[in-house]
Structures are given as C-alpha cells and as structure tokens.
Design a protein around this nucleic acid. Structure first.
Lengths: 254, 254
DNA sequence: CAGTGGTCTAGACCACCGT
DNA sequence: CGGTGGTCTAGACCACTGT
C-alpha cells in the first residue's frame, strides 16, 4: 500500500525557507553575488533571525552558499571536484602533486591513528603537515604520520624542522616499496588548526580521508586529510568535471 | 614567523562544552548509555539550552552521539565501516550484495544526474530504489537511474511496478558489458524521502556517493546513494574494522 | 499521559572586515 | 567606524515516543 497518506505534517519553517531560497538561488542570483544581510532577509520572510540562519546553514552545508563573518553571504560556485583516487602504488609526495608540505614535527599520534600503526604502542612519530591547493585556495589539510622505523636514515638529522625536514621525510618514505593502500572517508568537523589552515571557522564540516600506506607487511604511514566539505567533491576515478572546467556557467535565468 | 601569539580569543562556550562532553563521553559513559536530558544538562553547565544543543549537534555530526526525539540522547557506537569500493567491473545488484531493491518507477532525473546521462536531454528513465542494510539498520538509500536505452528488452513490460520490476531492470542491466565506473563523494543533507528511509529527520547530514556506470562508450546508468553520515565511514579497499564485529551488542538498558 | 528532543522567537552582545 | 555574520539567552510551543 505504501504511505498514500499525504503527510499532513506541517513542514518546519526553516525547511520551507531553505527550499524557497534554493529556488531563488537558481533563478535570480549569479555565482559570487552577495545576498541581503541576515537581519533583512529574516524580516523579509517574517521569521526570526535564528530561523533564517538555520536555513542558511543548511544551504552552506550543501555548498550552495558561502558565509564570511564581517563580509556577508555569497552564492557559492559549484563544488570543486578533487581527485582522491591516486594510483594505489604511489607514495604521497611523489612528483609534483598539488600537496605542499609546510611543517614537520614529532609527536605521539592520536589513539585512532595509533590503532592503525599496529606495531607501535604510543610512540612518537614524524608528523608531516601538508596543504593541498586547488583553484587558488587551500582545499585540504593533511597530517601524515610516519613512524621512525619507516624512515630509518633520518635518525641523525633533526635540525631542519620545517618544510625542509618534511620533504626529507617524504623522500625517505618514497624509497620503501609500497605494497598497497587503503582509504576511508567520513564526516568530521574541523579542529582549531585545520580550520585556520582551511580558512574556515572551527567546527566547520570536513570530509576526513584516512589513508593507510602498506610496506613490508606493515602499515608504514597513515595520512589523515581533511577536505572542506562545503566546497569539495571527492572523486575516485576520472569522474566529474575533471580538474578545471574553465567555463562552467549554468544557472542564468530571469 | 608563525603565530606565537597564544590567540587570546575566548573560546566559544559551545566549543568548550563540546570538548568537555567529549571527554566525559570517553571516560564516564558506555556505548548506548543515555545522557541526561537537554534541559538538565544545560542547567548543570549553566548555559542556555540552545547553547548546549549546539555542542550536542557537533557531537552528533561527529558520530559520537545519537539523538532521537521523544526518546533521548544516547552514546553512539563507533562508526560502521561500509565498503564502497566494489570492483570497477561489477554492475550493481549482482549476486547477493547488501542492497535490497524496494521499488521501480519511471521519472525524469534531476538536472545534476541528467548531465551525466549525456545522450539524453530531459527524458524519463527507470528509477530503481534500493536500500542498503548493515548491522541491523538501513545504512544507505539509493536511486539508480537507468535510461530505457540501457535496458531495451524491458519496453514491453510495465505491469509489475515494484520490487519485481526493480529486479528485472537490474538483471537486464547486468547483461551489458560494463566498461568501467566512476565515483564521487560529497556532503549533502537528506531529503524528505531519504530521511524517512534512513530513519533520520529531514536535513540530516549524508554522504552522497554518485556512481557512473559506463558501457558501450556511454553512461549506461547513474547511481546516487546517500549514506548516513553520522553512523557510516565509507571504506575503499580492505580498510577499517571490516564488516561485522560479532560482539557488538551493548545497548541494553533495563 | 509525561518526558524527550525539535522548532521558533525577540532580543542582546561579540568578533571580524572593509573603509 | 558601521555593517556583517557568530554566539548566547530565556523563554515558548510543537511533535514524537514510550508506557
């Protein structure tokens, strides 16, 4: 029979608002255009600001709006397709990918990561910080955990803490034979540091990509990369509007 | 020089709250245990309920809490690893996967999908609805768009609208030679129907997995699967806490 | 039915950005 | 500085769940 019942439930205001705004976005606004401020919008729709904000939050989550404190709310461009497929036999940092190492420290990895680095209990590892650029902005922030055992020839050198050391670690890592890798994607919220790196507020929604690199029967490194969930679409394979489509303008009505 | 400045900015209350609660969750609560209700919690922490809720929302987004209207807030089990890697040369519905077809209608696909079905402009396609089960609950809801051209032998049959027809479409589809597929993952929010299917409220965060199936140089089908972002971790490859860990029955409060 | 989370309001103040 | 979005409050009522 199915639910022929037409759900007489009254739609929440913010949900209806979101729908109305989404339609308006499609038909009456161009990418990059700024919307009226929240107080005006709320007044125009006859709702409290909090309610209006609930609708805006949803639209931002869906990547249709972009809000910046002190500036305003703008219509976001379509999500950027970011390739995350990487051939399963390439180490990170090979050749010229879009990642840019920014720092390298030593620290004991969080429990969730340590669990993947089977052999080691609670030991310090190298931690390489990298940022992924795309379309003129930083798109992802990564922490790459590399146990000292994976880069034995680095024990002597500790001085050049920073990008230089980061590159050294990546170089040494690439000398191992990579046997395979593993990926998982989940939703998270940006911590304070990632948020700053991604130019978002703390708590912003991110897609967390955890990658394990296998070598010598062990997990030789673990990467935790956080992608801006509002602006990114992770692609596996040649999917999507590959890289940069210089021209995409849809949405133009009137 | 880097920001040695210790950021004297006062942390937002809800952010601090979230941290405190997260720690309490780790140390003082078992999976499945129910928390005090929001009004009590807010009073205990000396904040307004809205503020307390902001913290809870974040924790729910991160998959650490589960809130159900009329019931209460419980400590969520660790996220379920759901394999999404599928060998690139398998059609959906082959053998016994965890998908269960529930319906099959005909409709014109949304613009975003139609764009992937290059050849066709705004034509009707078969739309197969499937639900993916896992760990005793529905974990994902899918819409599979199959242009009539991809399943030519089905033109005569229209009667058995429902699971039977759905299975027919999948069977016919599997007769084509699959040349490859494509995946993209992005954040979205559940629509009214998906929400009901996933037992969540509308607007709940979901991971949207879009898959294109290629055959005969064309896109023979497009699948849009929405996974519960709060409870799922999408895995590519053998990653993660593989399948089912048989022992997980906590949740039993007298 | 009582108790829970979900929605909504009308304010207030704060942090940030551009000028 | 004025204007923006971000945080917070103290209420109110609604929708849902269990018993």
């Amino acid at each position: 029979m199915g639910t022929t019942q037409l759900d007489t439930v009254p739609e929440p205001k913010y949900w209806h608002l979101k729908t109305v705004l989404a339609e308006a976005l499609d038909s009456e606004f161009a990418v990059g255009e700024i919307l009226p401020n929240e107080r005006d919008l709320a007044a125009r729709f006859g709702v409290a600001r909090a309610t209006l904000r609930q609708a805006l939050e949803q639209l931002e989550l869906e990547g249709r709006l972009q809000r910046r404190r002190g500036v305003g709310t703008t219509v976001a461009p379509p999500r950027v397709g970011v390739d995350v497929s990487a051939s399963p036999y390439d180490w990170p940092g090979v050749a010229a990918d879009s990642w840019q190492p920014t720092e390298c420290t030593r620290a004991v990895p969080p429990a969730a990561v340590a669990r993947h680095l089977e052999s080691e209990p609670a030991e310090e590892t190298h931690v390489v910080r990298r940022v992924r650029m795309g379309h003129g902005q930083s798109v992802a922030a990564e922490l790459l955990y590399v146990p000292a055992a994976s880069v034995p020839d680095l024990s002597g050198i500790d001085a050049p803490s920073g990008p230089a050391l980061a590159r050294s670690v990546l170089r040494e890592l690439a000398r191992l034979e990579l046997e395979g890798q593993d990926r998982a994607v989940e939703l998270g919220s940006a911590g304070a540091v990632d948020a700053k790196e991604l130019d978002r507020l703390p708590g912003a929604p991110v897609l967390v990509v955890t990658t394990r690199y296998f070598s010598g029967g062990r997990t030789a490194a673990v990467s935790v990369a956080t992608y801006r969930a509002d602006t990114c679409r992770l692609t596996f394979g040649a999917h999507g509007d590959l890289e940069i489509s210089h021209d995409d303008d849809r949405r133009r009505a009137s």
